[in-house]
């Protein structure tokens, strides 16, 4: 136990814990809307699509500064969302195929650019791929500060525009009829999404960022039928995953942070699937069992109304 307490004493670890927790919170909140809009895998596609953006940003500037790379990743993410939207709107390709196409083509181009950078031999390119596979443990104070500020912005934006986002998630046609700028809100939500993905990939990596967006939201959906509660729960689950995953990783067994956060989120998901009242597997089985017993009992006893009928005759 003293090891656990000692963790919180180490300022560096405290920063990383704080950062991963906020990241989980922000991505859980944004991910809820993505889940309801059936765009869960958008996070996966966007995080892969960031690679060419990172490479081009590096090629143009030649520096490996966090802001330049983040800007490149965000630009590529926006181009990718535009591409996915264009393909689904202007052809008969469905959204899933459009996502997969954009993901693979962008990532393929990104790999080509990465090999170009490696062959061109500019000395300080090493670590560019680390940017994509995530290294929470190497985050320093400024990285965490950026992460914290952006996560707060995400949560604040979702809180301020909660009503609007709720409406466009459930009934965009009605929202348009009410006079809301649906296209603008759509793009704003996508922008928040891109931002969440871009700040997340440097902490937990490409694949695992997708998990932080999806898994808390799906888990939260099991517990409630109300959007407000769901978003709050998803944020809590995300923050919990970030916190517990980082704590386990930092407690000294040398396991990577990102996967542990995802596994914590998965454990929460498994618990939700099993135990959530209403939709969980166990409560459902219990209800079915008790209903079956009630039915058996009522069949065993002679029914009252039928008896009365016989008397009348």
């Amino acid at each position: 136990m003293s090891g656990w307490l000692g963790l919180f004493g180490d300022p560096n670890v405290r920063w990383i814990l704080f950062g991963c927790m906020l990241l989980g919170l922000g991505s859980g909140v944004v991910g809820s809307f993505a889940y309801l809009r059936k765009q869960s895998l958008m996070g996966d596609a966007l995080s892969h699509a960031a690679l060419p953006g990172v490479c081009i940003a590096f090629m143009l500037t030649g520096v490996k500064s966090l802001f330049v790379l983040l800007a490149g990743a965000a630009a590529a993410g926006l181009v990718a969302t535009f591409g996915i939207g264009y393909i689904t709107r202007h052809s008969r390709i469905k959204q899933d195929a459009a996502l997969a196409i954009v993901l693979t083509v962008f990532f393929g181009v990104g790999i080509v650019l990465l090999t170009q950078i490696q062959h061109s031999g500019s000395g300080n390119q090493s670590g560019l791929d680390k940017f994509l596979f995530g290294q929470a443990a190497s985050m320093v104070g400024t990285d965490v500060a950026v992460l914290a500020v952006i996560s707060c912005v995400l949560v604040a934006a979702c809180a301020l525009l909660f009503k609007e986002f709720k409406l466009i998630s459930f009934d965009p046609g009605f929202a348009r009829g009410m006079g809301f700028p649906v296209a603008v809100l759509d793009h704003l939500l996508m922008l928040l999404f891109v931002i969440a993905v871009v700040v997340g990939i440097q902490a937990v990596g490409v694949v695992l960022m997708a998990a932080l967006l999806i898994t808390p939201a799906v888990s939260a959906r099991y517990w409630t039928e109300r959007l407000g509660v769901m978003v709050a729960l998803a944020g809590t689950f995300g923050a919990l995953s970030g916190l517990v995953g980082t704590a386990i990783s930092a407690s000294g067994n040398n396991l990577p942070t990102g996967p542990l956060c995802v596994l914590t989120a998965t454990a929460v998901f498994a618990a939700s699937v099993l135990f959530a009242p209403g939709r969980g597997v166990l409560p459902k089985a219990l209800r079915r069992f008790s209903a079956r017993r009630r039915l058996a009992r009522s069949l065993a006893e002679p029914a009252e109304p039928a008896l009365r009928k016989e008397h009348v005759q």
């Binding site: 889940y35 998990a211 799906v218 959906r221 995802v262």
Partner: peptide, 16 residues
């Protein structure tokens, strides 16, 4: 669970 979300949950968990 929506099918795309199911895909996302399962593969990220196994990958981790």
């Amino acid at each position: 669970v929506q099918s795309d979300a199911a895909i996302g949950v399962v593969f990220t968990a196994l990958f981790s």
